[in-house]
Design a protein around this nucleic acid. Sequence first.
DNA 1: GGACGATCTTCCGCTCAACGGAAGGCCGGC
DNA 2: GCCGGCCTTCCGTTGAGCGGAAGATCGTCC
Lengths: 258, 258
Amino acid sequence: MAGGSGSPGRSVTSRALGVLDAFSSDAPRLSLSEIAERSGTPLTTAHRLLGELTEWGALIRRPDGRYEIGRKLWDLGLLAPVQLELRQVAAPFLQDLHTTIRDTVHLAVREGLSALYVERISGRESVPVVSQVGSRLPLHATGVGKVLLAAAPDDVVEKALAELRPVTRHTVVDRERLVRELAEVRRRRYARTCEEMSPGAASIAVPVQVERPTGPLAVAALGIVVPPHRRDLARMVPALEMAARGIGRALARSMQFH
Amino acid sequence: MAGGSGSPGRSVTSRALGVLDAFSSDAPRLSLSEIAERSGTPLTTAHRLLGELTEWGALIRRPDGRYEIGRKLWDLGLLAPVQLELRQVAAPFLQDLHTTIRDTVHLAVREGLSALYVERISGRESVPVVSQVGSRLPLHATGVGKVLLAAAPDDVVEKALAELRPVTRHTVVDRERLVRELAEVRRRRYARTCEEMSPGAASIAVPVQVERPTGPLAVAALGIVVPPHRRDLARMVPALEMAARGIGRALARSMQFH
DNA sequence: GGACGATCTTCCGCTCAACGGAAGGCCGGC
DNA sequence: GCCGGCCTTCCGTTGAGCGGAAGATCGTCC
């Protein structure tokens, strides 16, 4: 018989969410059937939901046959206080740093076992950079990730060490080696990688710390990506540290008021 | 009597949307009853919807008593192709321009009768700037707005002239004067304002054009905000024009491939 | 040209999940 | 203690969402 029982188990909201979830940076534009398949929603249902989402307020757009994320979601996303304060406070410092060194600069925070990139300024295109604002990478795979991991609580480090999946052929997957690297990051107060994420790109990263009664707390990591043949990589560390200190101080100041 | 018939007239999706819509940049953090009131949803219903939105995938967060836009909406928003190409293509040019002039740089497109700011780099804090990425301002109230209006089709100009609401005490509301200003913008190929939006801020703006078989098409406006006492304002126009031309060419190139 | 396949859209009867008023906590102020 | 906001839980009613089937549309291949 045709006809349905209502949704079997999931609320309407959650299916609409499932439909939205079908979109990802790999697939920002999808056809109806792709969405239905990716979200596990029956085709008819997906069709109706997308219709509502489109009609009812530009959450979803459909300029041609395919569907894409609409303007309203962009608006709403900008309201998200995801590190809103950090981003606002850090922006001018990232600017200055970029002006000085002219390479890609980015800022990341730890979210679980990932580094979440919250801000970024692109440099000359010659250096290939994979991270984008909003993207996540495992903590053990990048410079900023290692800085964040080195500063993370022990249980996070343990969990991270437990699952060292390679992201590229050059990702560090040897536990002993990573432990040694983390110790060195803590000692030198900066991390350095060479072509681990993408060939032709080296990086250095430093922690952004806020002073707390219990000691300094690393709230983010600031990194730059440069061509690996640069000889003066180490010379950039002071500039990075200066910017990081600036952000840390500005953050502490702005947190007093809230 | 107790009990309800289902939702009277609006689909579930649309009420969930209404709830999301309650959030705005004026009020990014709201309590349950505020949301219920703003969205016109019965309190109980709002409560349930927010619960689902929160539980079912971090669309909404609730760190303390109040609700706020969650991380997932931020993620999704970043996928929105709202001028995605324009933003990506323009970013390095805005960078270079900012490095040269060191003041606030921003990029806006026309959306209906508003200028929508899609990208921005802040300059020295001394100059007060109201626009943010994602915000909208009437076309007649700002430099980039006037550039966009000067390049808009006649029917848009007419509609804009029909409702000249003042945004600040210094907004141009005289129709004749605005018409004259627009003519001058077209002739000089740049717009200039002085303390119209906020005291202590002047601006200049130029169109970003793409060559089309039918002639040049203005797709965006590029503007800077500087202190009004600067004497060398006009000298910056060439730099702005150069950046705008660069963006236009890069856009045309990238559009060939799509 | 005509048949086929893939994809999108409309239709419609059957349920059950959403609805929201009422009532029950919770807290802080007077 | 009592009152007034604000939030949360409860529950009977019912219409809104559900999704299979069938129709429409379009491009492709023989």
